[in-house]
């Protein structure tokens, strides 16, 4: 487990080698560290986590150079070795943002689940020129499903541009992607979705652009731009289903554009996950 390499020595030793199904490692100041498996947290060491442990993890992840990841930290995360580390703590006041001190870390462990969502593929492929949204609550497995859809569509002949802002889709640590995203995928990492989508559009002639988590207005504008150019979109969003999605003004606007005609809703957790297709109508 790559995430284990970032942990302090005693925590690393406390983890069972080859531990399966771990989705996250959680470190909270003053609490025992836990593993998140199948939606449940269980402690893996009795030693309570200290502020110094969090700093050690962050120092290792950033190569003792937190200033090089200030932009990411302002967004509440840090990418390292193909992992995403969610951070929480006391933020600096005013416009400066950034963290004054850290209280919790969530080391998210990206997984490659080959073969998931096989039954969705024909519908998603048919809609490749349009827009498909993958929806679930946080931690529902949107990114894992998106990754698998990209790989299958790409291997199936679709030229895909992947905007991987947070290094989660490709889990890329260097020039080569960590996960197999298919033979016809061009992966752009470390750039905002809006900027990356335009860059791919201009330079790589994608048939479909895939991106994780549409959350900001700029993302929405990029989606509109892409659709206007006749490029298909495969994206994820935080929402249990399209009806709840409409509760958020930005998502309501997104749905009203009519760009997305298909939604894949993920229900349940862990091995009990189910995928449900829903047609979206404006």
């Amino acid at each position: 487990m790559r995430a284990a390499a970032l942990l302090p020595g005693d925590y690393r030793q406390a983890l069972c080698p080859g531990e399966l199904g771990v989705e996250e490692i959680r470190l909270r100041c003053g609490r025992a560290p836990t593993l998140l498996c199948d939606g449940r947290e269980r402690p893996f060491s009795e030693r309570l986590c200290r502020q110094e442990d969090l700093l050690l993890v962050l120092e290792k992840a950033s190569g003792a150079s937190l200033h090089t990841v200030e932009d990411e930290l302002r967004g509440g995360y840090l990418s390292a070795k193909g992992l995403r580390i969610g951070v929480c703590g006391r933020m600096l006041p005013g416009e400066r943002r950034g963290f004054q001190s850290f209280s919790s870390l969530a080391l998210r462990i990206p997984r490659e689940c080959r073969g998931i969502g096989k039954e969705l593929l024909p519908a998603v492929r048919e809609n490749a020129a349009g827009g498909t949204l993958i929806l679930s609550a946080p931690g529902g497995g949107k990114t894992t499903l998106l990754r698998e859809m990209i790989r299958r569509l790409s291997d199936g002949g679709v030229r895909i541009g992947v905007v991987d802002e947070r290094f989660e889709l490709s889990a890329a640590g260097d020039a080569s992607p960590g996960f197999d995203l298919g033979c016809r995928s061009d992966v752009l990492t470390g750039v905002s979705k809006a900027e990356g989508a335009m860059l791919l559009l201009r330079s790589l002639n994608p048939q479909l652009v895939a991106m994780d988590e549409i959350t900001r207005r700029e993302d929405l504008e990029a989606v509109i731009e892409l659709a206007g150019c006749g490029v298909g979109i495969l994206a994820t969003a935080h929402a249990a289903d399209p009806d709840r999605m409409r509760l958020r003004p930005l998502y309501r606007e997104l749905l009203d554009t009519g760009i997305f005609q298909l939604a894949v809703c993920i229900e349940g957790q862990g091995s009990a996950r189910r995928y449900r297709l829903r047609e979206l109508c404006t």
Binding site: L55, A64, L66, H67, E70, R96
Partner: peptide, 10 residues
């Protein structure tokens, strides 16, 4: 301070 705090503080 180095590597741990925002760049301007460093």
């Amino acid at each position: 301070v180095l590597g741990r705090y925002p760049l301007d503080m460093q």
